[in-house]
Nucleic acid binder design. Structure first.
Lengths: 338, 338
DNA sequence: TTGTAGGCGTTATCAA
DNA sequence: TTGATAACGCCTACAA
């Protein structure tokens, strides 16, 4: 069990050197030899031992992604799409994808990064859910480990990134809500240190301003990006003496929770109450009512991130270091007005 | 960059052997030496190089999971919970989790398994979405690679497994639907070769039988486990001359699609139409109406699978080779009757 | 209790 | 165009 390069060499009466080079496509090996080697290797079912290759070449052909969970047990459709993008692009380039989950900002997360960096388990990282000031960014930068981020932190490190242009998009969303005739708009965000929170909230504020709607601090709540969080927040807001008639949410999960709370409160979403999310997860098309959202092409974003990361790892030039993606406003029933 | 065991040894004026043994907790090293070694190693930020260790020990301390996607670009909340369970249990045992996505039954999937097996990239596999006759099970078994499955195939291979007891659960669900007064029940399943499809469908058939409801083949449809699939299937069924008044779906995603179709057809789910899913994803609590479903503790199941797998890898005895998990019937609004 | 030395399977350098 | 041979960093018989 476990065919090595030696076995192949022996069978062919060649040296392991020749076999190795034939397989790796070096030019200094006779065409005929190469063909024989390739064929024999294949039929013997030979695959280079990763550990040995890795040890010798000082690289692992693996990229790492440490999923920032927000609870010990969590579930968010965002990630299945994101991960499949990472995995597919990695696979197409003969890279593997190593995954861990760790609660954002906890010690376990630091340990995971440190272990993978020090043990050289991965050649680079994809990082998302960036904080405005982000330990991970500073750490990876200080260790000179290749990495790319979704969203940019304000730390000085200069790594390639994909940014989703949230601000303008949210402004457009607020305009849309205002045009529909809603006037008292709440914002349910996430943890304040998150870049997506800050960006989207800023868009929200500017959107209100340009529509001459005053910003009522009582209508701004930080939740935790989950349906349960959105539900709890909306529940409270809807019981205010002067409740909002519209909700802009940091993501779709939060919005689903709001839909539920609204219903329990006897409000008709898409008639006397508007709700909008952000992400464009599949479920937003099938919720009741269907959810107005800012759709971001997560699968493609993930692939783009991996492409950039591989370029950094291979020290190749990157044409665009900071790709900006514009989400698409999907207007659905939840922001109708009757 | 990259501190090796040599660096630590040099700094301490010890041999690398002693350092290695001190860190690995061998007994034949002086207590005092051990403490010095551990402290120095830590402060130097030493972590053993994974590739070297792996090469020497012939194991990777990594488990593999190849996610069976059903479309090139997919999204299913099932997986975020499942993956976080795998990742957490693996991490707690100092194992890493390697992930790839490949379309179920495609060549890419075979390649992925073969590569990881031959290159010894992982010590074992977790496999799910099992087929009644499953290539992966036979392959891994033939290669003597440790693996565990969620659901059992009918192949002779005897690997540990976790099984979700679907049949009885679905029968209970059908009983519930019948008690509510629904009488014309449709089943929207998945690909016919899947064990979960067969199990759940069998439960459905038996449930009908014990309630003296005839099985109408026109009301049995195979979809693809997605919302879009459920939507399309329901759309068709609701236009039949004699449409069903209840839908049992193979999973929650499918059910969400059905909810949407029902609404477009002007039917009131939870009043004149019943819909039920299977999985108990978070979203089922927040959909409109909330979804009756068979809740399976996916996170715990994933952890259990990893525990079993690690036992197989370490050649330790397993108390229960085939754990059976009973899903919990969560009765919610979607099967009410008015 | 500590150190020496060989080898895990590759790739890369150099010589033939 | 091919073949010896020396690393890569770690673990572990065996010797001291």
């Amino acid at each position: 069990m476990g065919i090595t390069i030696r076995d192949v060499a022996k069978k062919l009466n060649l040296s392991i050197t020749t076999v190795s080079r034939a397989l790796d496509g070096y030019s200094d090996v006779a065409q005929e030899t190469r063909l024989r080697v390739i064929e024999t290797a294949q039929q013997m079912g030979y695959t280079p031992n990763r550990a040995a290759r890795q040890l010798r070449r000082q690289r692992s052909d693996t990229i790492g992604y440490i999923l920032p969970a927000n609870a010990p047990r969590f579930s968010d459709p965002f990630y299945s799409e994101f991960i499949s993008g990472l995995g597919d692009e990695a696979a197409e380039n003969s890279y593997d994808l190593l995954i861990a989950t760790a609660q954002s900002g906890q010690e376990a997360e630091q340990n995971a990064y440190q272990r993978w960096v020090h043990s050289r388990k991965v050649d680079g990282f994809v990082v998302n859910r960036i904080w405005q000031s982000d330990w991970r960014v500073r750490f990876l930068d200080s260790q000179h480990v290749p990495f790319v981020t979704l969203e940019r932190s304000s730390d000085p490190a200069d790594c390639p990134s994909v940014q989703v242009e949230s601000k303008k998009s949210v402004i457009a969303l607020v305009n849309h809500i205002r045009e529909k005739g809603y006037r008292r708009c709440a914002y349910i965000g996430g943890p304040a240190h998150l870049v997506i929170h800050a960006d989207r909230f800023e868009g929200f504020v500017q959107g209100l301003a340009s529509n001459q709607i005053p910003l009522d601090p009582a209508l701004v709540v930080n939740a935790d990006l989950t349906s349960a969080g959105g539900y709890a927040a909306a529940k409270r807001l809807l019981w205010l003496p002067d409740p909002p008639d519209a909700f802009v949410c940091i993501n779709d999960e939060t919005a689903f929770g709001v839909l539920h709370a609204a219903r329990e409160a006897g409000r008709i979403v898409g008639a006397d109450l508007a709700v909008a999310g952000f992400d464009g997860v599949q479920e937003s098309k099938y919720s009741q009512p269907t959810l107005t959202t800012l759709d971001q092409p997560l699968y493609d974003i993930a692939r783009q991130l991996v492409r950039m990361l591989l370029a950094v790892i291979d020290e190749q030039p990157i044409s665009e270091r900071h790709v900006i993606v514009q989400p698409v406003l999907q207007i659905r029933e939840s922001t109708e007005k009757r």
